[in-house]
C-alpha cells in the first residue's frame, strides 16, 4: 500500500493528515505550532505513522502548506494555502453537502475566501491584509479577557436572545468595547454573541468583496465554533457547511497534492 501525507504548518497549530492511495483518510494529528514548526511536524509524522502501524519510509510523498511550509524538511514539496484548501474542499465538502463554490477559511491569523469554478478550479481569492482582525486570534483574545474557554464561548453565544452591538473587529479596540459592556452590567451571553456577530460581519464583508457564490464551506479552526457558524449564516444569508474535521482541510488538500504528484511520477525506487 502507498501512503501520502499532508502537513499544514499554520500560525497557531500544525496539522497532519495521512491518506492511502485511494484517498481514504487513515489518520489525523494536530499540535500547537510553538517555536519550531519543523520539529512539531516531525513528531506528528512519527505519531501518525505509529498510530496507523506503518513505517515512515512507507510514505511515498509529503507535501507541506501553511505559513511554515518552506521550513518543513520532511516535505518533498509545498503548495500555497489557497491551493491546499481548494483541493481539500473538493474532497471534504462535495460528498454530503452538494457542490462547494466558496471556501471561507478562518485560521489563526489568516482569513481567506476562495471562489471555485465549475470544475473545482480556483477562480479568485481574497485574503486579509496585514491585520489579524476577523481571524481566530480575535476570538482567542476575547475568550481570554472574558475568562472563558474557546469552546465554551461558542456554545454560550448560541443562548443569547439580544446580542450586544460591538462595532470593532480590531482586537485592541474591541477589547475596550467589551470591557465597557461588562462594566455596564450586560449579560455575558449577549456580549459573547455580539463578539461573534462582529467577527461574522467582517468575514461576510470580505466574502462579498470576493463575490461569493452559495455553496459555502467553512474551514479552519474557526469552523469548530458553533456560534461563528450561526452568526455567519445570518450575515451571509446563506447556508454554511462545515466539514467533519474543518481544521484539517488544508492538510487534507496537501495530502491529495502529494497523492496527485505521486501518481504522476510513480516512485519506483521505494519499497
Amino acid at each position: 500500500m502507498n501512503w501520502f501525507l499532508g502537513i499544514d504548518a499554520g500560525s497557531t497549530y500544525v496539522k497532519a493528515v495521512l491518506i492511502d492511495e485511494t484517498g481514504f483518510v487513515k489518520g489525523r494529528r494536530v499540535s500547537a505550532t510553538g517555536f519550531n514548526a519543523e520539529d512539531v511536524a516531525s513528531r506528528l509524522v512519527e505519531e501518525i505513522c505509529g498510530e496507523a502501524c506503518i513505517a515512515s519510509c512507507d510514505i511515498c510523498g509529503i507535501v507541506a502548506t501553511g505559513y511554515g511550509r518552506r521550513r518543513i524538511g520532511d516535505a518533498g514539496n509545498n503548495v500555497t494555502e489557497i491551493k491546499a484548501h481548494a483541493m481539500g474542499a473538493l474532497r471534504n465538502g462535495d460528498a454530503e453537502n452538494g457542490r462547494i463554490r466558496t471556501i471561507i477559511d478562518v485560521g489563526g491569523q489568516d482569513l481567506k475566501v476562495i471562489i471555485l469554478g465549475d470544475a473545482g478550479e480556483i477562480e479568485s481569492f481574497v485574503m486579509n491584509d496585514k491585520c489579524a482582525a476577523g481571524t481566530g486570534r480575535f476570538l482567542e483574545h476575547m475568550a481570554r479577557i472574558l475568562d472563558l474557554s474557546l469552546s465554551g464561548m461558542g456554545k454560550l453565544a448560541l443562548t443569547s436572545t439580544s446580542p450586544c452591538e460591538i462595532n470593532s473587529t480590531c482586537v485592541v479596540f474591541a477589547e475596550s468595547e467589551v470591557i465597557s459592556l461588562c462594566a455596564s452590567g450586560k449579560n455575558l451571553a449577549d456580549i459573547v454573541s455580539g463578539i461573534h456577530y462582529s467577527l461574522a460581519r467582517r468575514i461576510a464583508r470580505m466574502a462579498r468583496n470576493a463575490s461569493f457564490k452559495s455553496g459555502v464551506l467553512l474551514t479552519g479552526g474557526g469552523a469548530l465554533n458553533p456560534g461563528l457558524v450561526k452568526t455567519l449564516e445570518d450575515e451571509l444569508m446563506t447556508d454554511v457547511h462545515v466539514p467533519p474535521y474543518p481544521q484539517f482541510n488544508g492538510a487534507l488538500g496537501a495530502a491529495f497534492a502529494a497523492l496527485e504528484a505521486g501518481q504522476k511520477t510513480p516512485l519506483t525506487g521505494m519499497s
Binding site: 500555497t80 494555502e81 485574503m127 491584509d129
Partner: peptide
C-alpha cells in the same frame, strides 16, 4: 513588515494562473 503575507498571496495568485 508585510512582505511574507504578500508573498503568500502573490504566490497563490501565480499558482492559480499557472493552473
Amino acid at each position: 513588515e508585510d512582505v511574507e503575507p504578500l508573498r503568500t498571496r502573490i504566490e497563490a495568485f501565480i499558482e492559480m494562473l499557472a493552473g
